[in-house]
Design a protein around this nucleic acid. Structure first.
Length: 581
RNA sequence: GCGCCCUUAGCUCAGUUGGAUAGAGCACGAGACUUCUAAUCUUGAGGCCGGUGGUUCGAAUCCACCAGGGCGCACCA
């Protein structure tokens, strides 16, 4: 079902290398069979001779020449020849290439799915504090995390998409206080609200309009009950209520972006269930917790610095720069301690592979969390990958769009979605490596031209569908006689299609969903090129009235193309369109 | 001061984990097309891959140092 042609033919290479140089099996791992960058080099190339040269003590070109002879005898290989410093370039027979089309058609959307790896991976993303609607800054992580999880799933991992709800810290207390002000206002007690706000330590933090309805709901539910009551009587109730409401808002935002999660894990519940103590105990048992005092940070000593004895975790034993506090000087747990618990909990749930998708401002957090995971794993093989998403600058008419709350422009994610649509937001966010800063051009995102990769890919799919509709949605294309497919543009397109499984595997391994977006863009380009060829030469058009055999062959190709585009868009979470309007 | 990320064509960015002559799109130059599958197409030019050393058959990719940009830097979340 996966049918990665490159993986299959690599076996041939390994067999022939073994025939040629028996016993040198330890180098097999570094032998690869890759698509050629340039079509004049054929369909595939292997570095086998280069890799083998040193252990075999022979000239790479000589090995390449002999390997080429062996490979050329294989059925399906039209030509194999040594090239450059010791590559072997392989050209497949057209028949062999064409045989892949029915494989795609039979597998459908599942083409490119990796074999089940039996490995559980936890992908945590968004995890925004439940204190308000999502803003643009959350967007990239949400999209990258969602697409990465989809990608890993397609590659054959058992993926769980997780949202870690930070509902235990000071920020949700601040939320409760902010909501309380709205509650008083809803009761018409504006003076009372002002008086309360004035004595909140640090001031009222969340002044957004989105809390107004929350205050109103509370007023309806509880009436005057909390109006004059001291904080301790309402804090828990209102905090819980507010967090639930904020999560509703966030879920709506995520839904608008077509981002989904399998589980929402509550920090509060984890803490209440003793998760932190359990996690720290594991570290304690390994002698990785001690009481000590940290040095002030070099070069930038805070004004109010004073040495304090704290409970510390020996992060330096696992590659971090300094040991990290797990308890504050007053004995309460640090946020880091809760995060250790969060990851320990995931490990307890059977995930030995975890991925955190975080914003760039959490970059300094990577080392300590990876250190903690290593420490928790002990002799186990748990691994945490952190995917950092750099800042996005939103551009309009060549100018950066201000994100200030006062200006009221594009603070909230919803505004961005309303402006360009969820599909465009997702695709464009995925057109960049996540660890590089990017510009999001609003003009390009809605343009109906090649500048806009979403449009370009969608247009290719719509063209495929349009052709198939015009042909009356033929069935049985997988059994079509394909020998009529001989045009260079057609073969180029097929080569692109069969590269899909390999791309899925590589992109998943690298945790780089953006590669899928680029692949689709290139695939769309190849398809449009074929379409355009038909414009100059009517004989290359897909539907040939008097030639049912040619037509069926071409429709098979078109159908396979649409399948792969759908498959790729599915990974990105973008809906394929049937027609352009 | 320390750590992490980034630096590739005029602009926005890829570069398949170290491979062959570093690629796209936009913008720019030249040509085609008069709506036929046109929400255009073909084609050209454009590069010291930030710099300097190193590792090896081979480096944009790995290592060291330097320069520039971003993010973070006791107990906050």
């Amino acid at each position: 079902m996966g049918s990665n042609l490159f993986a299959e033919l690599r076996v041939w290479v390994l067999q022939d290398v073994e025939t040629l140089l028996p016993g040198l099996t330890q180098m097999h791992a570094s032998i690869e069979l890759t698509p050629t960058r340039d079509a004049v080099h054929g369909d595939m190339a292997t570095n086998a001779a280069l890799v083998a040269a040193k252990p075999a003590g022979r000239n790479p070109r000589e090995i390449a020449a002999r390997l080429a002879e062996l490979l050329a005898k294989r059925e399906g290989i039209a030509k194999a020849e040594p090239a450059g410093p010791g590559f072997v370039n392989i050209t497949l027979t057209p028949e062999f290439l064409l045989r892949q089309l029915p494989v795609i058609l039979d597998a459908g959307i599942a083409y490119g799915n990796g074999a089940a790896k039996g490995q559980k991976i936890n992908v945590e993303y968004v995890s925004a504090n439940p204190t308000g609607p999502l803003h643009v800054g959350h967007c990239r992580g949400a999209v990258v995390g969602d697409a990465l999880a989809n990608l890993l799933q397609k590659a054959g991992y058992d993926v769980t998409k997780e949202y870690y709800v930070n509902d235990a810290g000071a920020q949700v207390v601040a939320l409760a206080r902010s909501v309380y002000v709205r509650y008083l206002q809803a009761l018409g007690r504006n003076l009372h609200a002002e008086a309360y706000a004035a004595q909140v330590p640090g001031g009222v933090q969340y002044g957004g309009e989105y809390l107004v309805p929350v205050g109103q709901s509370l007023a309806e539910l509880y009436g005057e009950m909390f109006a004059t009551a001291p904080e301790e009587q309402w804090l828990d109730t209102i905090r819980e209520f507010a967090v639930a409401k904020m999560l509703e808002l966030i879920r709506e935002d995520l839904a608008a972006l077509h981002v989904t999660h399998d589980v929402f894990t509550s920090e509060r519940e984890l803490v209440a269930a003793g998760g932190v103590e359990r996690a720290l105990q594991i570290l304690q048992d390994r002698g990785l917790i001690y009481e000590g005092t940290l040095e002030p940070p070099k070069g930038k000593t805070p004004e109010d610095w004073e040495p304090r004895e704290q409970t510390l975790f020996r992060a330096t034993q696992f590659g971090d720069d300094v040991d990290r506090p797990v308890k504050k000087s007053d004995g309460s747990n640090t946020y880091f301690a809760n995060d250790i618990a969060c990851h320990a909990d995931k490990m307890a749930r059977g995930f030995n592979a975890m991925i955190d998708v975080l914003g760039a401002d959490h970059g300094g957090y990577t080392k300590r969390m990876q250190a903690a995971v290593k420490a928790l794993a002990g002799n186990g093989d748990a691994r945490l990958d952190v995917v950092l998403c750099q800042i996005v600058r939103v551009m309009k008419n060549g100018e950066p769009v201000r994100m200030s709350k006062r200006a009221g422009t594009f603070v909230e994610l919803r505004d961005l979605i309303d402006e360009v649509g969820a599909d465009a937001v997702r695709f464009i966010m995925l057109m960049r490596k996540s660890d590089a800063q990017m510009e999001f051009d609003l003009n390009a995102a809605v343009a109906q031209t090649r500048d806009n990769p979403v449009f370009y890919v969608q247009y290719a799919h719509a063209r495929c569908r349009s052709v198939l509709r015009a042909a009356g949605e033929p069935s049985g294309l997988a059994a079509a006689d394909l020998s009529a497919l001989t045009a260079p543009e057609e073969l180029t397109l097929i080569r692109k299609l069969i590269a899909w499984p390999r791309l899925v595997e590589a992109a998943a391994l690298a945790r780089e969903p953006h590669r899928v977006a680029f692949f689709l863009y290139e695939l769309a380009g190849d398809f449009h090129a074929l379409w355009n060829a038909g414009r100059d030469d009517a004989a290359l058009r897909f539907i040939q009235a008097e030639k049912p055999i040619e037509t069926a062959a071409r429709l098979a190709l078109v159908s396979a193309t649409s399948v792969i585009i759908r498959s790729g868009l599915g990974v990105l979470g973008v809906k394929p369109v049937e027609e352009m309007r």
